[in-house]
């Protein structure tokens, strides 16, 4: 059964079918949110919130776009709402220092771990909009056409954003690593 068929059944009242969609997608979704937030606990909370919203808005599912696109749309909004809420809670002076925290446990001694931490840090310094398109295309395996649908913009804009994001990331990465190799 395809994702779309399953979600249509969830929409029509067979909510137990959401369990299959959860099993198929929760790890990918978790990693998507982890790349955006850099925090494991928050990402788990957000995955739970995304599935809560899927249930809440299940009757609005039209099946015109793929389930993945719809799910990432909800995930993106959930993440934006979370950032907004976090801003409201934080006193102003702390907001300025706020940057998505990279998972500290990753930054351990070996070379690979250092590399991972470096990439993670570079990603976290990328502005949210660029980080989103990059994560969606690089890690979530979404086609540019799907990302355009998800963001509600033209496919050419998505490609331009990805191009820009990779260039910016290269700059940040070079600064961070102090290497001139790139």
């Amino acid at each position: 059964m395809t994702d779309n068929q399953l979600m249509q059944e969830v929409r029509d009242g067979k909510v137990e079918k959401l369990a299959v969609l959860f099993e198929r997608h929760h790890i990918r979704l978790y990693n998507f949110l982890l790349r955006l937030t850099g925090n494991r606990n928050i990402s788990e909370d957000l995955v739970q919130e995304v599935f809560c919203r899927i249930l809440k808005y299940r009757t609005t599912y039209r099946g015109t776009s793929t389930f993945s696109v719809w799910m990432y749309q909800i995930a993106r909004n959930t993440h934006i709402d979370y950032l907004r809420k976090k801003k409201e809670e934080l006193p102003l002076d702390e907001q300025w220092q706020e940057a998505p925290s990279p998972a500290p446990s990753l930054a351990e001694q070996t070379e690979l771990k250092e590399d991972i931490a470096l990439v993670q840090e570079a990603l976290s310094r990328l502005p949210l909009k660029k980080r989103e398109v990059l994560v969606l295309s690089r890690y979530q395996g979404l086609k540019y056409r799907e990302i355009a649908e998800l963001l509600g913009c033209h496919i050419g804009t998505v490609k331009a954003h990805v191009h820009r994001a990779v260039k910016d990331l290269r700059k940040i990465y070079t600064e961070l690593s102090g290497e001139a190799v790139l």
């Binding site: 959401l18 369990a19 494991r40 599935f51 809560c52 249930l55 991972i116 990439v119 990603l123």
Partner: peptide, 23 residues
């Protein structure tokens, strides 16, 4: 290519049980 070093991580088991309680 360098972006590929980030491994896919797995969430804790608690996430699954929370999901099923909610469902």
């Amino acid at each position: 290519t360098r972006l590929g070093v980030l491994p896919e991580e797995r969430p804790s088991e608690a996430l699954r049980s929370r999901f099923y309680t909610m469902l």
